[in-house]
Each structure stands twice: as C-alpha cells, then as structure tokens.
Design a protein around this nucleic acid. Structure first.
Lengths: 207, 207
DNA sequence: TAATAATTCTATAGATCTATAGAATTACGG
DNA sequence: CCGTAATTCTATAGATCTATAGAATTATTA
C-alpha cells in the first residue's frame, strides 16, 4: 500500500523526487502546464503515470516545486553577485551573463517559473513573489550603487531599470532557447552596452 | 443540419465569427490555449459549446485565427509608422507607444500570439512567422535610417536592436497588464530614453 | 404567410486525463 | 536468507473535453 504521508526521508527518495522535478520542468517547459500530462512527465523519467503520485500529491504540486526550484537557484546566484566585491559594471554584466547562461544551459525550471506560475493557486504564487521581489530588489540595489558611485545618472529610476533588465533578459532567454546557434557572449555584451550606453551616437568632444 | 462548408458569406456570420475570435482571444489570454475549453469560449460569447463549431472547425483553428488577427493588426500599425515622414526618434517612440498602448488597451490577441502560437502546427506557425519577420524588419529599417542620419552609432547591430526593442516591449506589456496603475506614458518615455541613451552618466564637457 | 436557409441547441460518442487503491516487485537490515 | 519497508506497477473510477449529428429555433425571402 501507498504510505499515507509518502515522504520517506532517505537519499533515494530525495534523489528520485529531484529527478521527478527535473522531468516535470522539462515537460512543462516544452508543452506548458495544461498541455503536459502526468503521463508525459512519468515517461520522461522512465516510470508509469500512476507512480508519479508517490512523489507528488498532485500535478499542481509538481508545478509548484518546479517553479520554486527554478527561482530559488536563481536568487541564490543573484545574491552572490550582489554581495560580491566588484565594481558596478562588472556586477551588471555578471547579472546578464548569469541570466542568459542559465537559459542556454539547462534551466527549464526558470522558464516554467516565468511562463506558468500564474496557474498556481494564489497562496503559492505569493511565496514565489517574495523570492522574485528579492531578486529584483537586489538588482535595484546594484543600480543604486551605480548611481552613488557616479557611474550612472543621478536621475535614474532604479526600479524601472531593474524591471527593464529582467524583462530584456527574459526576452533574450526565449530567443536563445529557440536559436541554439546564437552567439551568447556577443549577445551579453550587446545587452550590457545597450543598458549602459544606449544606441545613440556619442559626439566626440574636445576638452 | 449543419452545412458541409459552414461559411455563409453574409454580414451576420462574419460579425459573429469576429465575436468568436474576440472571445477566444480573451479566454486564451487568461487561461492559455490548453487551459481554456471550448465551453469557456462559448460561454464568454453567450452561446453553447457545440455552437462554437459553426464558426470554427476546431479549437486549434480558433487559436490560429486569434494569432493572425493579433499580429496582422499589429503589423499594419507598424507599417504606417515605418512609412511615415517623421524623424528617427519620433518613429522609435511611436513604435514603443503603439506596442505598449496595444497591450494596455485591448489587444489580448497580441498576447495570445506571443505566448501561445507555438502550439499551432508547423504550417500555420510558418505563416505567422512571415508576418512577425515583416514587423521586425520594418523596425530594423527604422534603426538603419537612424544610423544613416547619424542619430545612431555606425557600429549598431540593427538586427540586435530590433529584437531587443521588441523583447523589451513585450516584457513591459506583461507588466502593464498585471499592474493597471502603472503610468503608461512615463514608461514609454523611460523605455525610449533607455534605448537611446542608456543609464550611464554622461559627462558634461566644455567645448 | 409559406417555404427555405441560417443559426443555435441538445445529446452524446469517444478520447483523454487526474488521482487513488491495492497488488507486485525491489531494496534493505538483521 | 527472511521479514519488513520502500518503490513501482496495473487497473480503474470519475471527471473532464473535443467534435459531431440531428433536432429545434430563428431569420429571410418570395
């Protein structure tokens, strides 16, 4: 019989559950939450549909875990950049690099978090929102530093800046996933340059 | 009995079909293609589930129509900006304004095009891709003008620029939909300013 | 108004899909 | 190697959901 509370506290269970989360991430990323079936997820990890419920009590719980996993890992990385001892411009580039690399490399969970979290119940969404806000606030903090150090204009709206950068990174993330040949480093540099300098011609002035 | 080819060529049919497309857009935008049922769409337009098939031969056809409607209207607007006789900076701002206003005002179809078109069969996606490319190329053209006129740097990668702007607008579009209180005009100005000038402090130089 | 055409409805076949129960199998501690 | 616990499987109830057929209703036209 299936245990009432099927959460054995051993390594194997934890490891398999992690696999299940990864499979769910992969399938949700490809087909969307409602377009993916529990059968798809189970097949992806090589077990039968019913067995999946040994690891999740519902499909929705699986989505919740994927989203949490995606954003948590991500916030961690952001934190390590924020607290590091680099000048502003390095931090900005590190942020963009982290974000885009994450998309290219593996992080299907982040994509799922961005695209599918709205299908979670209010309560879980609130938890995720906290994590997302933390991320944005750290980026805001980086911009504030930049303003203080004089690298950025004093008039800068740091809240706007952070949202714009996150939005742009997510947009490029989608493109990066669709076009595997795109030069990642080139894109990172151009994004950083855009954010710092914009596209306008800079007049060369004699001093 | 239901006609074999149910496409009566009269005004009423066309009008109701348009209503159906709008309802589908609204429901797909809220719940996603797979999360929305034909019952939802039918209820939204005040008819019964089965009756919807008088206007679409499948749910997928409805999605196709919504996407086409969303992007077509959009490309038209972009075209009118592109061929107009304004200086580069006005065209850029008009583009951003058009894009963001469209999100705020009504254009659920555009959101559906952006988020759900990947669930269409390859063939229909290809048609839409042409329209999307047309849109992007027109924006690229505007940037090329800007370079030629000396307003933008000669080193600018116009393809990158166009994708970055579209991506940023879509990202802000999502935010705008979620946060109805956001000041649209302020956001438009800040986006334009970001794209032109970036965030970096501009040194004041004596000449 | 009568006849025809267009539109909508009801009912349902058939194909999912989620979640659960209990049996079968596998791993593990002694 | 035996007994217990953990894991996976099979089978299925019950709830969808899409698409179709044909009846009922409404509009149109002569």
């Amino acid at each position: 019989m299936k245990p009432v509370a099927p959460s054995p506290d051993n390594d194997r269970y934890q490891h398999q559950r992690q696999q299940a989360i990864r499979s769910a991430a992969s399938v949700f990323a490809a087909k969307g939450f409602h377009g993916a079936s529990t059968k798809d997820i189970a097949e992806h990890m090589g077990i039968k549909q019913g067995s999946l419920y040994y690891y999740f009590k519902s499909k929705e719980e699986a989505l919740g875990e994927v989203c949490r996993y995606g954003i948590e890992e991500y916030v961690e990385h952001m934190t390590s950049i924020a607290v590091s001892d680099q000048p502003f411009e390095s931090k900005l580039m590190a942020t963009i690099t982290s974000h885009l690399t994450s998309y290219r490399e593996r992080n299907e969970a982040l994509k799922v978090h961005n695209d599918e979290r709205l299908y979670l119940p209010e309560e879980k969404r609130a938890t995720l929102k906290l994590l997302g806000s933390k991320y944005r606030q750290q980026l805001e903090g980086i911009f504030e530093e930049g303003v203080k150090s004089g690298a950025l204009r004093g008039s800068l709206d740091c809240h706007f800046a952070a949202q714009a950068v996150i939005g742009m990174c997510n947009a490029w993330g989608d493109i990066i996933v669709r076009e595997p040949d795109l030069d990642l480093f080139d894109t990172i540099q151009k994004c950083t340059d855009l954010i710092l300098n914009g596209f306008r011609e800079r007049r060369i002035v004699k001093r």
